[in-house]
Design a protein around this nucleic acid. Sequence first.
DNA 1: CATGAATGAGTTTTCATTCAT
DNA 2: GATGAATGAAAACTCATTCAT
Lengths: 224, 224, 224, 224
Amino acid sequence: MNGPTDGTSDHADAKDRPDRLRCDAARNRERVLAAALEVYREHGPAFTMEEVAARAGVGIGTVYRRFPTKTALLEAIALPFFERMLSQVREAAENSEPAEAAEVLIRLVAERHAADGVRTGRLWGSALSHPVRARIGPEVEALLAAARAAGTLRPDITYEDVSVLLWTLTSLIDATNDVSPNIWRRYLELALDGLRPSPANSTSPASRDDWLRLVSASPVLTLG
Amino acid sequence: MNGPTDGTSDHADAKDRPDRLRCDAARNRERVLAAALEVYREHGPAFTMEEVAARAGVGIGTVYRRFPTKTALLEAIALPFFERMLSQVREAAENSEPAEAAEVLIRLVAERHAADGVRTGRLWGSALSHPVRARIGPEVEALLAAARAAGTLRPDITYEDVSVLLWTLTSLIDATNDVSPNIWRRYLELALDGLRPSPANSTSPASRDDWLRLVSASPVLTLG
Amino acid sequence: MNGPTDGTSDHADAKDRPDRLRCDAARNRERVLAAALEVYREHGPAFTMEEVAARAGVGIGTVYRRFPTKTALLEAIALPFFERMLSQVREAAENSEPAEAAEVLIRLVAERHAADGVRTGRLWGSALSHPVRARIGPEVEALLAAARAAGTLRPDITYEDVSVLLWTLTSLIDATNDVSPNIWRRYLELALDGLRPSPANSTSPASRDDWLRLVSASPVLTLG
Amino acid sequence: MNGPTDGTSDHADAKDRPDRLRCDAARNRERVLAAALEVYREHGPAFTMEEVAARAGVGIGTVYRRFPTKTALLEAIALPFFERMLSQVREAAENSEPAEAAEVLIRLVAERHAADGVRTGRLWGSALSHPVRARIGPEVEALLAAARAAGTLRPDITYEDVSVLLWTLTSLIDATNDVSPNIWRRYLELALDGLRPSPANSTSPASRDDWLRLVSASPVLTLG
DNA sequence: CATGAATGAGTTTTCATTCAT
DNA sequence: GATGAATGAAAACTCATTCAT
């Protein structure tokens, strides 16, 4: 279109402004992702690709260009969830006494999850191995160590226990948030009670083997 | 028909057991139900009616004759689950000290659920209102009262808390049984720890309102 | 086979009380037919054989024993319609002046059809060749002849014309009876007007050929 | 590629007519519609969506993309019928003396309906409210007024009467066209006779109420 | 004979995915 | 790259008809 005799004018355009397209593409990706989150919030994983496309204001072909599969799209929906998890860990570490940070984290995760309304709990299953996920574990571990040192956490509670606790908690929130949006709080307190030190606790942590098998399998329930 | 060795024994049989037909039908019903449980075990609620029919060795029309709807079939799958729950409550009550019965019940439910392998946890949601379900609640309540009296249970722990705990536990078992069939045990211990009395416990139970809303809603997570 | 020690005792029974069975069978037939008329009234030809059986209080096998096919049942439903037609012809002939009988007949048929509420119009199509049907034609013809002689009917109006008129009329009643149960009356008057003599009428009747083809074909629209 | 005689004319075409895609789609739509009309002609409304797809040479999904429901497809089949009706009204108005136009219209509708062979009569019932339908009424009314003024139509004949007459006529044609494709002509003449003025006519038109109920109900039998 | 259980082809409709434009 | 038309494999459910009891 810029060359007078050029037939493949689209291509020529692409060459002239290479980032223009990339920019548009990125914008489209974001719009699709936002739309997907929206429909996921409404229908859960039963949403339709066409619905996502319509909500994003793009053609369905565009959705498939960015996310070659519905599964891929679901994973992309799940990613920010882990990003948020990491930021919550840091928020807990920064804004609270070390003795409190572990408990604060758990409360934070639950509270935000309930407030958000997206049943992302179901998304944990995506076999997602993103760098961000790997970083969560150690930082949570640090929180727990501090709490243990401060004597506010049962010494035998491991990072894995907390992972499972958070999965359980978010599952419960997902399952009850619609009809009884506060009932999880009671359960949260019970669980936190279980984490506090007391003379009677002597259970031994889950076997390392069991845990590794769980982590390596898909779907996984683990944090990082 | 007149001689005892008469060849037309079918007729004689028909007379002897006038519900022969119903008997065959009942047998088919069982086969369908068994097949359904089997495919549910494999695919979860996403199973196909046709698959059930094939597995049962009957036509698809037969499946629909017994269970006019996929939902009806799902409920039929769920029913024995609640029946088993009730029998487990009684088993716990009969075979253990009152002080221990509550804990025994929880262990029993979890253990059997894990052994069974069917992800019946997902079935709690069926809006099933069968007499059997109504009977579970009071009997569990009795167990808890005894444990409370014996001082082996935190006094503020209600029947509702136990309901949610069991739902959580079975969900966890469902989610991990394939890959890490023992990890739920650790979590069970943690949860049981949380139920034991200790100086620090002072959380108040979930509000009656919240609970009623949850119970009346469908899907429900409650025991009875 | 007829020996006293015969195993096929049913047969023996049948022999002992031959009309007993026949009597029961006839009763069943009637019940099925009545039920079929009932469901036809409600659902039109879209009714279900099972519904008929249930309404009749018999098993579906019994329905099929009496009417080997849904079509056969439909035809059986249609039969009394023709019987009634014949009786209406006679009623018209007996209770009115010859000059009026033709018009009376048409009014009678329409009125009863509307009052009955069964959309039997759709049933004319059954390729029903019952003796009763053959008798209708000549008797109607006689009525028309009398009316022609009395000068109250256009001389070129044939029995066939009346047949088609009645088909048309009942179809209209069927189609409008639910929502506008009187509108057919206006149309009836228009049609009757068209049958009365007037200077201008000179159309020639339908060709005999056309008519015969129609009569011999199925579905047919003719009276007898 | 850029030369005017280039073989890859599609691309060039695509540029020239940017609605090429829509054009193809439209072509497919027409093919589906034509196929639907064809199968409707053969089986009536009992046709199968799959049959339509096969006949149109497209996948069944394509049929559903254009007509999201079988009902929608039926309505689409019915639409041209009404369009044709309107054009016939105009044709009658333009090509004949005002005194004759009403009769010409009725003859035209019947003749074309018979020639077409599609039993569209059954389609009048579709609760179709398309602009075209609204325009038919007034134009027919005008024809009737002219005929009334010219003394060729009974003064009490209303637009509604003609509507019902045409419904009746097309129903008759539908019912007889296969086996006796001319018999409706006789009936047409009888009906037309009924419309002509004569000293004896004094029936009053259908009550306005009855008519309105009929028009507002669905399925409707009315023209516009 | 009566029963009703069994059958399975057939129907409408949905939706992830591909591909021509 | 974007678009949305096309695809067709399922899936849930229906119902006329057969046949064992």
